[in-house]
C-alpha cells in the first residue's frame, strides 16, 4: 500500500509539467547523441556498404528511409491517440501537451513516407503515384494529422480544443489497421510487408541489418523530437508560472 502510494506520487510528479520538463532535460542530450550516431551508422551502412538488390539495383536504398519513416508515422499516431484518450479520461495536462507535440512530428514523418515512396515508385513501378489502398490510406493518415493540427487552431479555448483533437485522433485510429492490412486485404501495387513479427524478414541479412539500425535510429529520433516539442509546449503554456520565469533568469545563454 505504502509502496504503491510512493509510485503514484512519483508518477504524479512526473506527469506535472515542471516535473517532466526537469526530468526530460536530462534525457535530451543522450537521445540526441544516440539517434544522430545511429542515423549516421545506418545511412553509411545502407547507402554505401549494403549490397544492391538483384532486380531493383540501387534504387531500393530508398527503403532505408521509407520503412523507418512509415513505421514512426504509424507508431506516432498511436502515441497521439493514447495521449488524447488519457487527456479525455483523466484530464492530464501533460497528455494534451504530448498530443499537440505529436501531431506536427507525425505529419512530417507521414509526408516523408509518402514522398520517399513516390520517388521510389517511379523507377520501380513506373509511376510516382497510384490510388492504391495502401497509398491512399497513408494519405488519409497525413490528413488526420493535419486535421488535428488545424482543429487545435480552430478553438479559442484550449480545453475545448484539446478535447476535440482527442476525439478526432481517437476516431482516426480506425485507419491504422487498415493501412497495415491494406496490402493483404486488397489487390494492390504495393508489395506486402518485408518485416513480419511472425516470420523471418524476406530480405538478405546484409541488407536487413542496416535497415534495423535505421528503424531504431528513427524511434530514438522520434522520442528526441517529441520531447523537444513537448518541452517547448510546456514553456509556452506555463510562461506565467513562477518556475518558468526563474528558468528564464537562469538560462542566460
Amino acid at each position: 500500500m505504502a509502496r504503491s502510494g510512493a509510485f503514484w506520487q512519483r508518477l504524479h510528479r512526473w506527469a506535472s509539467p515542471p516535473g517532466f520538463y526537469r526530468l526530460s532535460g536530462r534525457w535530451v542530450p543522450w537521445l540526441a547523441a544516440a539517434s544522430l550516431a545511429l542515423l549516421a551508422l545506418g545511412l553509411v551502412w545502407g547507402l554505401l556498404y549494403a549490397p544492391p538488390d538483384a532486380r531493383q539495383g540501387n534504387s531500393y536504398r530508398i527503403i532505408y528511409l521509407h520503412v523507418p519513416a512509415s513505421f514512426l508515422a504509424l507508431a506516432g499516431y498511436y502515441v497521439m491517440a493514447v495521449a488524447g484518450a488519457i487527456h479525455l479520461i483523466w484530464r492530464v495536462k501533460l497528455a494534451d501537451m504530448l498530443m499537440s507535440a505529436a501531431a506536427p512530428l507525425g505529419a512530417a514523418l507521414t509526408f516523408l513516407a509518402l514522398f520517399s515512396g513516390s520517388l521510389w515508385g517511379k523507377p520501380t513501378w513506373g509511376t510516382y503515384w497510384v490510388w492504391d489502398a495502401r497509398i491512399t490510406s497513408m494519405l488519409v493518415l497525413l490528413f488526420l494529422y493535419l486535421g488535428v493540427m488545424a482543429l487545435r487552431q480552430a478553438y479559442a479555448s484550449r480545453e475545448t480544443a484539446g478535447r476535440a483533437c482527442a476525439v478526432l485522433a481517437l476516431v482516426g485510429t480506425v485507419n491504422i489497421p487498415i493501412i497495415y492490412k491494406s496490402v493483404d486485404w486488397w489487390y494492390s501495387l504495393h508489395q506486402p510487408a518485408t518485416i513480419r513479427l511472425t516470420a523471418a524478414p524476406s530480405m538478405h541479412p546484409d541488407m536487413f541489418k542496416p535497415l534495423l539500425v535505421m528503424i531504431v535510429a528513427f524511434y530514438l529520433f522520434y522520442a528526441w523530437v517529441l520531447i523537444l516539442n513537448t518541452r517547448a509546449e510546456i514553456l509556452s503554456r506555463e510562461r506565467r508560472a513562477a518556475w518558468v520565469r526563474e528558468l528564464a533568469e537562469e538560462d542566460v545563454t
Binding site: P52, G57, N58, S59, R61, I62, L119, W120, K122, P123
Partner: peptide, 8 residues
C-alpha cells in the same frame, strides 16, 4: 546510384 541517383 546506378542511374537512380536523382531518386535516391
Amino acid at each position: 546510384m546506378g542511374g537512380h541517383g536523382a531518386y535516391v
